[in-house]
């Protein structure tokens, strides 16, 4: 059941996308997300969708694996779509009792749904093809200019990499604790909301105890190796741009251009 959460997980395989520089992937993901908010018509979504399919194919991650992560946000998706569907003013299409569905609402709901699905898919491609370490390395490098403004960039990225690293560990731990309590007859799946919330106590207490213990151990281990922040710290594998990264940047620029230009042409 917990294995269904693919958010922040890394899918190990060899592909062009996997071997790209993490900075490229971060920039690409951000560009993609921004492009989704620029798009105002269906042509734009088709281009974005094609780009997404292209990336998924290149990444060699089975689509099944990507969409398994979608299950967890299904509810948010449905609620967002329903709100847009019923609460947008405009030309009414269907009216019953106090609710009415408008033409604008229908259009907005569909667009919002597509946008959310694309958003999640786009960012999961990044996390699925980049190891947490690489991801934070890339982020640290991209945020470097902020150092001049006294933003603790290294510390932030270190915290992020630790947090990301611990997601799978804690998930596995949760799975084990759940099983240990289920072996004692615990039931996490039935009952009213209140009993269900209560049934989480036997799961959360051991989980928190273990998380604190792990945090403590990690702090000790870091201290034992004289960790003292980012000052004067060098990298074992510094990030270097290669030819394929330049090509990838070019592809991103082309994609953004296509979205903007085609959007304009069909909009006017």
């Amino acid at each position: 059941m917990l294995r269904d959460i693919t958010l922040g997980q890394y899918y190990r395989t060899e592909s062009v996308i996997h071997s790209l520089d993490p900075r490229v992937k971060i920039v690409a993901t951000f560009s993609f997300i921004i492009s989704l908010f620029l798009v105002k018509n269906f042509i734009g979504y088709i281009i974005a969708g094609l780009f997404l399919v292209f990336c998924i194919r290149l990444s060699k991650v089975p689509p099944k694996f990507i969409f398994r992560g979608m299950k967890t946000i299904f509810f948010i998706l449905i609620i967002t779509m329903l709100f847009n569907l019923f609460l947008t003013p405009g030309i009414p299409l269907v009216t019953f009792w106090k609710f009415q569905i408008t033409k604008e609402g229908l259009k907005l709901a569909i667009m919002m749904g597509i946008r959310l699905v694309f958003l999640i898919t786009g960012s999961s491609i990044m996390t699925l093809t980049t190891t947490p370490n690489n991801l934070t390395d890339g982020l640290e490098d991209l945020l470097k200019p902020l150092k001049k403004l006294r933003v603790p960039v290294h510390e932030i990225s270190m915290m992020m990499s630790i947090a990301l690293r611990f997601i799978p560990i804690l998930m596995e731990e949760t799975d084990k604790i759940m099983k240990a309590q289920m072996a004692r007859g615990a039931d996490f799946e039935s009952g009213s909301l209140m009993t269900r919330a209560k049934s989480l106590i036997p799961l959360l207490v051991p989980l928190f105890v273990s998380a604190f213990r792990r945090a403590n151990d990690l702090a000790m281990a870091m201290e034992a190796r004289c960790y003292r922040g980012g000052e004067g710290r060098t990298k074992m594998k510094p990030l270097v741009y290669k030819r394929r990264d330049a090509i990838a940047y070019l592809v991103i620029v082309l994609y953004l251009a296509a979205i903007v230009v085609l959007g304009r042409i069909f909009f006017t």
Partner: peptide, 30 residues
């Protein structure tokens, strides 16, 4: 699961109550 009892490797994965007695009560209570 009551008839086939399974004790996992790490007791830390199942102990959660404020005292031992209450913790042992968890199984039969369920």
């Amino acid at each position: 699961r009551a008839r086939v009892g399974l004790v996992f490797q790490y007791p830390e994965h199942q102990l959660f109550e404020t005292d031992c007695f209450k913790d042992v009560c968890f199984g039969p209570k369920n």
